[in-house]
Write a protein that binds this DNA or RNA. Sequence first.
DNA 1: GCGGAAGAACTTACACCGTAAGCCTAAGGT
DNA 2: ACCTTAGGCTTACGGTGTAAGTTCTTCCGC
Lengths: 244, 244
Amino acid sequence: MSRGDDIVDADADAVAGKEPPSARLPLDRDRIVAAALGFIDEFGLPGLSMRRLGGILGVEAMSLYRYVPGRENLLDAVVESILEEMRLDEELLDEPRDGWQDFLQRMAHGIRRIALAHPQAFPLVASRPVEAPWLRPPLRSVRWVETFLNGLISEGFSDDAAVGAYRGFTSFLLGHLLLEVSTHGADVGPLDVLEDGEQRNEKPWDYPTVDRLQGALSQDHAAIEFEEALEDLLNRIALINAES
Amino acid sequence: MSRGDDIVDADADAVAGKEPPSARLPLDRDRIVAAALGFIDEFGLPGLSMRRLGGILGVEAMSLYRYVPGRENLLDAVVESILEEMRLDEELLDEPRDGWQDFLQRMAHGIRRIALAHPQAFPLVASRPVEAPWLRPPLRSVRWVETFLNGLISEGFSDDAAVGAYRGFTSFLLGHLLLEVSTHGADVGPLDVLEDGEQRNEKPWDYPTVDRLQGALSQDHAAIEFEEALEDLLNRIALINAES
DNA sequence: GCGGAAGAACTTACACCGTAAGCCTAAGGT
DNA sequence: ACCTTAGGCTTACGGTGTAAGTTCTTCCGC
């Protein structure tokens, strides 16, 4: 080493008007959560460790524990931050304006947007244990449930119809979005390329129909299917509403 | 201890016709997978480690690696074994007998049965990466997809209609069953009982509608909802079929 | 019976993980 | 000038997956 070029001269920096790198951004909790989400988005959940996350923030792992009780809690916070992000979506309404169909359409599309924005993190929303059994993913916060139910009731839904709609809505969204997002993950998954001369030992393959339909199966109509299935769901909900 | 009662007398056992406990069941791969599934069913996925699994089988952790390439592969094998279990279900048909509705009804109920039989393991079926993007959970094996598609096509479905039905079917099942199973998990989750004098620091709670509907939200109509939603799905599929 | 080969388990070792406990330094109030 | 406190660092412990090497057991050809 020639006279420690890699060591920053803090005094000189201070004179130059720069902030010393340490203690300037005192490692806020939100910044930790944001960094965690960023990491997951970029490298996937399994790679996230407290030590690495600390490294990203230029800090030892243990320093994180001043702001976050532990890894589990951190992941919960990540989920929460994703739902919070959805709050900022301008398209989403706090209450119906042009009928409950429009209200639910906007909500469904909003959730789909965040799912597609965080394909690696979205499964967290689904797989993290929920504090109350009726608080179902992906509408994982009481505020959203309250918004949902109030919205429908204000449009003339009975209590039971609103609850039924809530269950159908969550179930539909969870299934569709998990699958849509998981195919995105498959695209960027482990490359898994065959080395030269390497031979994949395939089992005997005798699935002619799958073979023949491979093309049709691989086509991505997720967006259209989402719209159609959503519309069917809304019709179904309309029926629930009419019956009750 | 009075004269090592806990030590088995192997010779005496051999004379009595019993097999010595060691090396008699040479730790077959299927036995490992079955033990893993059993463990998950009983204690949940996060507690499963190679060392503990070895312990259960009366063996050091590293011995498992002779039959299983690693933990990830083991979990894949567990998923596979669950799907295999479904093959044995007598109610399931290899091809339609009383129409495609009956065919799909049986398949849906079969998958629901295994989901409810392994509530702790079922999320694995959904969250494990799939080798091909069109191989969607919970129908996670080419054989099942082949069976599904062939069944529908033999009943007069066009290729596209069959593929569309496949997508709707998987999406519906995944969403509904994941949610149904997750509420089961919540029941047996960490007890989380308040200690004497401990006070849960609740945030200010202002969700009157959720409050009022707490009862309705908590009621468990999963079975009925499953039937109704499944019937709606079948109607939807019938439409797809008619249109194409 | 015996030597050797092969199979199946055990042992050791490494890098990494989450996190409990304590230490060190610097800023701010008095 | 002192003390408090915040905000980070260091160390340490038990646990994890797994690569590599070792030891024991069993069986087969002679």
